[in-house]
Design a protein around this nucleic acid. Structure first.
Length: 312
DNA sequence: AACCGGGCCAACCGCGAGTTG
DNA sequence: GCAACTCGCGGTTGGCCCGGT
């Protein structure tokens, strides 16, 4: 945590505007939230200015992404998420944004903190414990993947992924590959919901040659979909209703419920920021079923919820 | 009850890449 | 081509919380 904002004010380089630093007050959160709901994402410097915040745009962006974003999950990481983080980190390293992109509702900062504070320590402990003679594989998710022991399937999986990554070594070649005969498919699809039973194995299937629409190739050989209002798009749609916005999001351990008067311009009902509800824009990714049949999904490529484009 | 130390995590910092004029 | 600006990312900091003593 930082010092309270009013203790760390300093003059901005431009315009002698005092910029606040440190913790965000509920009033500041409210201002930013209301502004984002009304106007959506734009230039962060303008957002900070127009929202009446004495913050730099960078600070506003961080606050929005890491805390105020409606589609953020709250609470501890699930077992599936934990396993996926460990797995992705084994391949991607400290590319937290890339890892976060595969965990809907989680931020890179959150994952980074989780890794540094929890997983790292447990991995270390796990490595130590696996060196002891009487140790066997436990139900610990760490041991399922790492802990010094990687299953044959995992190893093959990683080889596959690394091959995919190495196949396209630069962003320029990546861009060229978009229109080339073949392209690398994202081996790490995002988790749909942590309540689902998830097979963390990537989709090992071939995609016929076709032009790619509705997405771009990322820096690691993956296919980044254009997903409006979800983890790839942190903006929110503008709201044009009248009344009040009742916004729910927890502040640390307590579940706060903010009733915001939005200048007679917004009315949001049943606007729940809880863990089970995602932002409207992400609903195109939801399957509507509590239990996904991953085998059948994998068997039928065109039915995959990850595919946001048509395969010809 | 007071103190201490480690964990957690929000937020800052610096840097590189991309964009704009 | 260049400088200024903006954005996004990863590393780091440091205050709060909480369990142990």
């Amino acid at each position: 945590m930082r010092k309270p904002a009013d203790q760390t004010e300093k003059a901005s380089n431009k315009g002698n505007v005092k910029l606040r630093k440190g913790l965000w007050s509920p009033e500041e959160d409210e201002k930013l939230m209301v502004y984002m709901l009304r106007n959506g994402q734009g230039c962060w410097t303008d957002i900070a200015k127009n929202a009446g915040l004495q913050r730099c745009g960078k600070s506003c962006r961080l606050r929005w992404i890491n805390y105020l974003r409606p589609d953020l999950k709250r609470g501890s990481f699930s077992l599936q998420e934990e396993q996926l983080i460990i797995h992705l980190h084994s391949i991607l390293g400290n590319r937290w944004s890339q890892i976060a992109a595969r965990l809907p509702g989680r931020t890179d900062n959150e994952i980074k903190n989780f890794w540094n504070s929890t997983i790292k320590k447990r991995l270390k402990d796990s490595v130590i414990s696996t060196t002891s003679p009487n140790n066997s594989i436990s139900s610990d998710p760490i041991n399922g993947i790492t802990g010094g022991m990687i299953s044959f399937e995992e190893h093959e999986l990683m080889n596959f992924c690394m091959d995919s990554i190495s196949a396209t070594t630069s962003s320029s070649s990546m861009q060229n590959s978009i229109t080339s005969a073949t392209y690398q498919f994202d081996p790490f699809p995002p988790l749909q919901d942590n309540s689902h039973e998830i097979n963390i194995a990537p989709r090992l299937f071939n995609v016929p040659n076709h032009s790619v629409e509705g997405g771009i190739l990322d820096d690691y050989g993956g296919f980044e979909q254009y997903v409006t209002g979800f983890e790839n798009d942190l903006s929110v749609p503008s709201l044009e209703n009248d009344g009040n916005a009742e916004l729910m999001f927890d502040k640390r351990s307590s579940n706060g419920k903010y009733l915001i008067d939005v200048d007679q311009s917004i009315k949001v009902e049943d606007f729940d920021f809880g863990t089970n509800n995602h932002w409207q824009g992400g609903q195109n990714l939801k399957t509507g079923s509590d239990q996904l049949d991953w085998e059948s999904l994998l068997a039928n490529v065109s039915f995959s919820p990850y595919l946001d484009f048509q395969i010809e």
